Simulated assay, not measured.
Amino acid sequence: MSELTQTTRETPLRLIDRSPSITGAEIVAELVPPPQFEHASFESYRPDLDYPSQLDAVERLNAFAAWRARPGGFFSRTRKARNELPGIYLDGGFGVGKTHLLAALWHEAPGPKYFGTFIEYTALVGALGYAQAVKQLTGAKLICIDEFELDDPGDTMLMTRLLGELISTGTRVAATSNTPPNSLGEGRFAAADFLREIQAMSANFETVRIDGLDYRRRDTAGQAAAVVPEELVRLAGALVERGSTVSVDDFGALITHLSTVHPSKYIKMIAGLDVIALQNVYLLTDQTDALRLVAFIDRVYDAEIPIIATGLPLHDVFDAEMLQGGYRKKYQRSQSRMVALTTGELPPQAE
């Protein structure tokens, strides 16, 4: 670390020194698509023609978004006459464009409308309380939930109740996940004990399956890049001296720090950063630590912040048992994102 300090001529910025707070109003303000999907549209979606389900998904989402053409308004009798379900659920592997399509749908919808991750909605309830969260979201024409998760029974009950109340007032819901809605919770907790709640939620959704390959790996070797310590020092130093904001943390210290910060606050932890540097990456064997890292990487990916790392390549941080368990799809998605973050371009100042 001393060599890095000398290179950058200042004490390196560290994520472990950031313990942000977040209010309900701030969470609400962030309920919009991530920056890379700010202009997402159905027209800009690039389907893989080898997988017809991708084009089919666009068609079905366009039909779901047909409020724009309904003469009777958003809540017209036409929708009820067609017996349309109030929700649509995009199910498919990681990297097939589900988030792009969800954002495109959000852009098509009239307001008020909200777009957020599952964690953000549960955090909103935590910040405002259930009744105030319902009040805040009531009246929305559309609520988009990216990467729908049901990792514990409490979240199952909470989200089922919340969506039920909102749907009953006319709100439409669109969600993405790697797991069909009637299978949520499998392999994670005793899903049978909550089958009634899961099925009640599932009944509100039309499930749209999207097949395909991970677009993030089409042009890469599928491996996260790792550099030697000296290269990290050189790159971080060059970036800082040329005006970029770079954080430098020991991987183990960051993992420990993440346990003290609610995942809804990770976005504020990384605010203002251009590059994240991680030293001494190692294999994770604790699933709680691994899931926190997944949530952190999701926020880094949404913010499009490149990562420079030493030690074990980041896509190898999850042990074999994790990759075979109930959270395997979450880990695989995170691996894909870590490959993209470590193999993408650094800010121009470092070139």
Rank of each mutant, 00 (worst) to 15 (best):
A271V: 03
T245H: 08
S247M: 01
Q349V: 15
N280R: 14
L124Q: 06
L158Y: 07
I88K: 03
D289S: 14
L195W: 04
D56C: 03
R188P: 09
D146C: 08
R328H: 13
D155Y: 04
P47L: 05
G97H: 04
P20E: 01
Q199T: 15
I22G: 02
E206Y: 02
I270A: 09
D155E: 11
K141D: 00
G243P: 11
V261C: 08
I297H: 01
S76Y: 05
Q223A: 12
R328N: 11
T171L: 07
V28G: 04
L49I: 10
T179N: 02
L55R: 13
P86D: 02
I145G: 04
I308A: 02
T171N: 08
R333H: 11
H107Y: 06
A253S: 13
A140L: 04
V261Q: 03
P33Q: 07
E241R: 15
A320G: 06
E186I: 13
G95Q: 00
R60C: 05
D274E: 12
G325R: 02
K268E: 13
K113T: 09
V261D: 02
E241A: 12
S76K: 07
F75M: 10
Q223M: 08
L101W: 00
V208I: 15
A350V: 14
Y331Q: 06
M201N: 03
Y215D: 04
F296N: 01
Y266W: 07
P180Q: 07
D289I: 02
E351M: 08
N62D: 12
M157W: 03
T288F: 11
A221H: 12
I255E: 00
L213F: 12
P20D: 04
R188M: 09
F115K: 05
Q279C: 07
E84L: 13
A175Y: 01
T207D: 04
A271F: 01
D50I: 00
R234D: 12
E84V: 05
D302Q: 13
S259K: 14
A81L: 14
P112D: 00
F42A: 02
G97M: 05
L166F: 08
E345Q: 14
P306I: 03
E241H: 12
F118Y: 11
L323D: 01
I22Q: 01
E206I: 09
A109D: 01
L166K: 08
R216T: 09
K268N: 12
I270V: 15
L291T: 10
H100G: 09
G311N: 03
C144I: 10
R299L: 05
E30I: 00
L284K: 04
E43D: 14
H107P: 08
G325L: 03
L31E: 06
R217V: 10
P181Q: 02
L124Y: 08
A350N: 03
A277L: 07
R196C: 03
Y45E: 03
T8H: 00
I167D: 05
